[in-house]
Amino acid sequence: MSVGHVARAFEAAGIPNAIIMSKVFRDRTAAMSPPRVLLTRHPMGRPVSAPFDVEKQRGVLKAGLELLDSATEGGTIIEYEKPYRTGPFDN
């Protein structure tokens, strides 16, 4: 819930923002009417990717950033299509 308060405060202060989060907490965050949300199909504690999944990290961040450009109204929630990938990945 913390992120919902921050998102609303930042938006009200004129800082457009997008939340990137696991879909596990979708209902709780959506209930707070945040401006923009990108949901990932990831388990708790791994909102962006598995450790060292650099390709996924880049893809998720780009999708979140694109949401800043594309959203035309508050409460925009989309889901990142690609599922969680387990490692190991190179680091």
Binding site: V3, N17, I20, G45, V48, L61, G64
Partner: peptide, 10 residues
Amino acid sequence: GAQAALLIPI
């Protein structure tokens, strides 16, 4: 200097 933000909850 923020003009936009990404917020990442856990």
